[in-house]
Simulated assay, not measured.
Amino acid sequence: MSERKSIFITGGGSGIGRDAAIYFAERGWFVGLADIDEDGMRVTRDMINNGFTHMHRLDVRDREAWDEALNAFSIAAGGRIDVVFNNAGIANGGPLIENPQGEIDQMLAVNLNGVIYGAQAAHSHLKKTAPGSALINTASLAGIVGAPGLAAYCATKWGVRGLTESLDAEWAEDGIKVAAICPGFIDTPLIEQTLQDSNQSMKENLANAGAEISPVSDVSKVVWDAVHGDNLHYTVGKTAGRLMFLKRWLPGKVRKQMREQGVGGDL
Rank of each mutant, 00 (worst) to 15 (best):
W66D: 01
G241A: 11
N50C: 11
R61K: 06
H123M: 09
Q120Y: 01
A69T: 04
L150E: 09
S133I: 06
A142N: 11
K127E: 07
I213N: 00
D62M: 00
A109W: 00
H125G: 01
A77D: 02
G175M: 06
F85G: 04
G149C: 05
S140P: 03
A155N: 06
E3H: 03
E212R: 06
D197P: 02
T10N: 12
A209Q: 08
W29V: 13
K203I: 00
A147F: 14
I9P: 09
T44P: 07
A88Y: 06
E212N: 05
Q261V: 06
H228W: 04
G265S: 14
H54V: 04
I181C: 11
L33T: 03
A151Y: 10
L33Y: 09
E98F: 15
L126F: 06
D230P: 02
V160G: 05
P95A: 11
K203H: 00
N87E: 09
I186L: 06
E26V: 05
L232Y: 09
K5L: 15
G264F: 01
P183L: 12
L96D: 12
F245H: 08
P215H: 02
P251W: 10
I36T: 13
S6Q: 09
D46K: 14
N208H: 01
G159Q: 08
D187Y: 02
I191L: 06
Y153R: 05
F52M: 13
